[in-house]
Lab assay of single mutants.
Amino acid sequence: DVEEQIRRLEEVLKKNQPVTWNGTTYTDPNEIKKVIEELRKSM
């Protein structure tokens, strides 16, 4: 579920933690925001 994935990513973003997405680890909050944007567009 895309909305659930977005929620999880936003939680990680709030905690300022790195997130691994599709085999890539993002540590930059701006990169994580881009991933969230892409997910929103795909909905």
Score class of each variant (00 low, 15 high):
D1E: 13
D1K: 08
D1W: 15
D1L: 12
D1F: 12
D1S: 13
D1I: 11
D1R: 08
D1Y: 13
D1P: 09
D1Q: 11
V2Q: 06
V2W: 11
V2I: 15
E3R: 10
E3Q: 12
E3D: 07
E3A: 13
E3L: 14
E3K: 10
E3I: 13
E3C: 10
E4A: 11
E4S: 09
E4H: 08
E4L: 09
E4N: 08
Q5N: 06
Q5L: 15
Q5G: 05
Q5T: 14
Q5R: 04
Q5W: 15
I6C: 01
I6W: 03
I6P: 00
I6H: 01
I6M: 04
I6Y: 02
I6E: 01
I6F: 03
I6L: 07
R7D: 03
R7S: 07
R7V: 05
R7W: 07
R7Y: 05
R7L: 10
R7C: 05
R7Q: 08
R8C: 12
R8A: 13
R8N: 10
R8F: 15
R8G: 07
R8Q: 14
R8D: 05
L9P: 00
L9K: 00
L9W: 03
L9D: 00
L9E: 00
L9G: 01
E10T: 09
E10H: 04
E10P: 00
E10R: 05
E11M: 09
E11L: 09
E11G: 05
E11V: 05
E11T: 07
E11H: 07
E11N: 07
E11S: 08
V12M: 15
V12T: 13
V12C: 15
V12G: 15
V12F: 15
L13A: 06
L13W: 07
L13P: 00
L13H: 03
L13V: 08
L13D: 01
L13G: 02
L13F: 07
K14F: 12
K14Q: 13
K14L: 15
K14D: 09
K14G: 09
K14W: 12
K14Y: 13
K15F: 13
K15V: 06
K15A: 12
K15P: 01
K15G: 08
N16H: 10
Q17H: 09
Q17A: 10
Q17L: 15
Q17S: 07
Q17Y: 14
Q17G: 10
P18M: 09
P18Q: 10
P18I: 10
P18V: 10
V19S: 02
V19M: 08
V19Q: 02
V19F: 13
V19N: 02
V19L: 12
V19C: 06
V19A: 09
V19P: 02
T20N: 14
T20V: 15
T20K: 10
T20C: 13
T20M: 13
T20Y: 15
T20E: 15
W21C: 05
W21R: 02
W21Q: 03
W21T: 03
W21G: 02
W21H: 11
W21A: 03
W21I: 15
W21N: 02
N22V: 02
N22R: 05
N22H: 07
N22K: 06
N22I: 02
N22P: 02
G23M: 01
G23F: 02
G23A: 02
G23W: 01
G23N: 04
G23D: 05
G23E: 04
G23S: 03
T24N: 08
T24C: 08
T24Y: 09
T24H: 14
T24M: 13
T25S: 04
T25Y: 14
T25V: 14
T25A: 04
T25F: 12
T25W: 11
T25C: 10
T25R: 03
Y26T: 02
Y26D: 01
Y26I: 11
Y26F: 09
Y26N: 00
T27H: 08
T27I: 08
T27W: 09
T27E: 06
T27F: 08
T27A: 06
D28M: 03
D28F: 03
D28T: 09
P29C: 03
P29E: 06
P29T: 06
P29I: 06
P29M: 13
P29Q: 06
P29Y: 06
P29F: 05
N30E: 14
N30C: 10
N30K: 11
N30F: 12
N30G: 11
N30Y: 12
N30S: 12
E31T: 05
E31S: 06
E31K: 04
I32A: 04
I32V: 08
I32C: 01
I32L: 08
K33T: 07
K33I: 12
K33E: 09
K34C: 07
K34A: 13
K34Y: 06
K34M: 11
K34E: 07
K34V: 07
K34P: 02
K34Q: 11
V35K: 04
V35E: 02
V35R: 02
V35D: 01
V35Y: 04
V35H: 03
V35S: 01
I36F: 03
I36P: 00
I36E: 00
I36Y: 02
E37Q: 11
E37N: 08
E37V: 07
E37K: 05
E37S: 09
E37G: 05
E38N: 11
E38V: 09
E38A: 11
E38R: 09
E38I: 12
E38M: 15
E38P: 00
L39E: 01
L39T: 01
L39W: 03
L39G: 00
L39K: 01
L39F: 03
R40N: 03
R40P: 00
R40F: 05
R40I: 10
R40G: 02
R40T: 05
R40A: 03
R40V: 05
K41G: 08
K41M: 13
K41E: 08
K41T: 10
K41P: 01
K41R: 14
K41S: 11
K41W: 10
S42A: 12
S42I: 13
S42G: 10
S42P: 04
S42T: 14
S42N: 09
S42K: 12
M43H: 06
M43N: 07
M43A: 07
M43F: 10
M43T: 07
M43L: 15
M43E: 04
